[in-house]
């Protein structure tokens, strides 16, 4: 695989705001085929929003998102749906359908889209569940599983239709070290074995740096740095250093902007 190959997703000069609040200002990035690309940044800057923009669930105010050369937000509904069959998304909560068991959850998209016979679907689902190590809970309901297991089941569902790209929304958030290790291993292995293009959005620095091929760091509504994990570790950008080292104070101040402290103590809150 060469660097000159066309990227699967290209974002050009993306701008997005929610009401009065600007979330993105002129964001451009590209996601190469078959690699694990990570987008890092502190909480609350709308990384999930970026994934939703990439999936066509939200429409940007300006700029384009190209998937394999197609502008996602200029597509007709049916074109968008056929693009979505080529991508899938692992939501932070797992988003398993609570009214069906794990097996049916994984089988759901296959039954809807593949047109395969039930016995073949069954075998595919079992293979996917085996890949995430959850074949033993096929008949359990999602609510009976732990958070980490739910996320793995959701991963099996996400890869059921063999998509070209999987978007992971905060896959490591709130996981214990073991599940975290399992997920890191799964993302990396699936990416290599199925030649998946993976987009990982996360603020867990060490895990991301350990699996990503290429990393974008976001802050202040735009991308402040990008490069391979190795390059980023040694980059000399104060904001990036604070983020990677997890320093409590720095360019991102400890204090949220407020009125003068002494003034407020003397005269009370205005």
């Amino acid at each position: 695989m060469t660097q000159t190959q066309k990227p699967l997703i290209e974002i050009r000069n993306l701008g997005f705001s929610r009401g009065q609040r600007v979330i993105y200002n002129d964001v451009s990035l590209s996601i190469p085929k078959g690699k694990v690309t990570a987008i890092m940044g502190p909480s609350g800057i709308g990384k999930t929003t970026l994934l939703k923009l990439m999936g066509g669930q939200l429409t940007p105010d300006s700029g384009q998102v190209l998937f394999d050369g197609l502008d996602i937000h200029r597509c007709s509904r049916s074109e968008l749906f056929s693009i979505r069959k080529r991508m899938s998304m692992l939501f932070q909560s797992g988003a398993l359908f609570t009214d069906m068991n794990v097996f049916d959850n994984v089988a759901f998209a296959l039954r809807e889209h593949s047109g395969l016979s039930e016995s073949i679907i069954e075998r595919i689902v079992l293979m996917k569940l085996e890949a995430v190590g959850l074949r033993g809970v096929a008949k359990q309901m999602p609510t009976e599983l732990s958070g980490g297991m739910q996320r793995r089941a959701a991963l099996a569902r996400a890869i059921a239709l063999e998509p070209e790209m999987v978007m992971y929304d905060e896959p490591f958030a709130g996981q214990d070290p073991i599940s975290m290790g399992v997920l890191v291993k799964l993302i990396r292995e699936l990416s290599d074995a199925l030649n998946l293009t993976s987009v990982v959005v996360s603020h867990d620095v060490q895990e991301v740096l350990s699996i990503a091929d290429y990393v974008y760091v976001m802050a202040d509504k735009t991308i402040i740095a990008h490069g391979t994990p190795e390059a980023l570790r040694h980059a000399d950008i104060a904001q990036l250093k604070q983020f990677i080292e997890g320093a409590p104070d720095g360019p991102v101040p400890f204090h949220y902007p407020a009125a003068d402290y002494q003034e407020e103590l003397l005269h009370g809150l205005k």
């Binding site: 056929s82 069959k85 899938s88």
Partner: peptide, 12 residues
């Protein structure tokens, strides 16, 4: 719980 979004992303 993003089940609706999840359906949308499955092209349903």
């Amino acid at each position: 719980t993003e089940q609706l979004s999840s359906l949308e992303m499955m092209a349903i």
